[in-house]
Amino acid sequence: MTVAQNTTPASDGTARPSIQTSNFSRWRVPLSILALCVLPWILPSQALAVNVLIYGLVAVGYNLLFGYTGLLSFGHAAFFGVGAYVTGIAIGAFGMHWFVAMVTGVLAAGVLAIVMGALAIRTRGIYFSMVTLALSQLVYYTALQASSWTGGENGLRGFTVSTLNFAGLSVDFLNPITKYYAIMVVVALALWFVSRVLNSPFGAVIEAIRENETRARACGYNVERAKLLSFVLSGLLCGLAGTLSAMHLSIVPLDSLHYHTSGLIVMMTLLGGAGSFFGPFVGALAFLSMEDIFSLWTSHWQIIVGIIFILFVLYLPKGIWGTFVSWRAGR
């Protein structure tokens, strides 16, 4: 079993989490929500702030699998895209209520995660990564061929959510600020859920698997079942982000299922700091801000971002937020 990063020796000689780390863990959800509340007022556009919310949530889901369980997946675009596509189809083709469509999209991503996870966890290391990549591309080409449902290369169009009606309340979803805070409510609930998962015994088990899978197995934990559950929870969170993206854009581009999107998710997680709670949002903010700025300078902005990413991997492997947390813990 792993212990918190900042520990103090107890009277029996074992390491226990320090008061500082315990307090930070207790307040990490409200502090994260507070930081997100001010985001649309400090960024140059509300659209960028909404994208940070959505892609930050995708990275949070991926971070649960990679940062906390230690499994490197290259196929998480499948869950993001399937959540978006199913939500768009449910609204546009079947006229479902937006909430029912969101639930349907998340469940579809969860079912896909069960299937992909059951196949992928049979492998380890780079083989796990390649299996997830192959399965994700299979989903991509399935969507490409099912053009009567997905729109093929043109993506899914023909649906719009202009008003959110729920429990007697009506929210104007076309207003940028209103849209941001409506999405933030969903993101806040997801963060609370992730925090509860990490603070549970299951959270300790997946961290033990990350640190030493063989030792965790020797301690009697069902490693395969824990990895599968972590994979499914990760897929559900990414699917939830996909449903929010579909409602935000009113279109679902085919590229949302492509391995390029999976790569972006990995980059955002690493830039912010894998294994840190708020790091995914910092990584999403950093990547999207660089894209927004450098794309105005040159059409080859990916080269600049790629160089910066390499420098981070070499000299700042804990990411922006992860390095900051380590620095604070070491003071």
Score class of each variant (00 low, 15 high):
T2E: 15
V3S: 07
A4R: 11
Q5P: 09
Q5F: 10
A15Q: 08
S18P: 00
R26L: 15
R28Y: 07
R28K: 14
P30W: 11
P30R: 15
L31G: 06
S32D: 06
A35S: 11
P40M: 08
I42V: 15
A47I: 09
L48D: 01
L53C: 06
L57E: 06
L57G: 08
N63E: 07
N63K: 03
L64M: 15
L71D: 06
F74Q: 09
F74I: 09
G75I: 15
G81S: 09
Y85P: 06
G88T: 08
M96Q: 10
A101Y: 04
A101G: 09
L119H: 02
L119Y: 03
T123E: 08
M130R: 10
Y141G: 00
T142N: 04
G155D: 00
G155L: 13
R157D: 01
R157L: 08
F159A: 08
T160S: 14
T163V: 11
N175Q: 13
T178S: 14
K179A: 11
Y180R: 13
V185P: 03
V186S: 01
W192N: 09
V197M: 14
E213M: 10
C219M: 15
S234Q: 06
L237H: 02
L240M: 08
T243V: 12
L244F: 09
M247H: 05
H248R: 14
I251A: 12
L257Q: 05
L257V: 04
H258N: 14
H260E: 05
T261D: 02
S262E: 11
V266D: 06
L271P: 05
G273D: 08
V282E: 04
A284W: 01
F287W: 13
L288R: 07
S299L: 03
Q302D: 10
K318F: 08
W327D: 14
R328F: 12
G330Q: 15
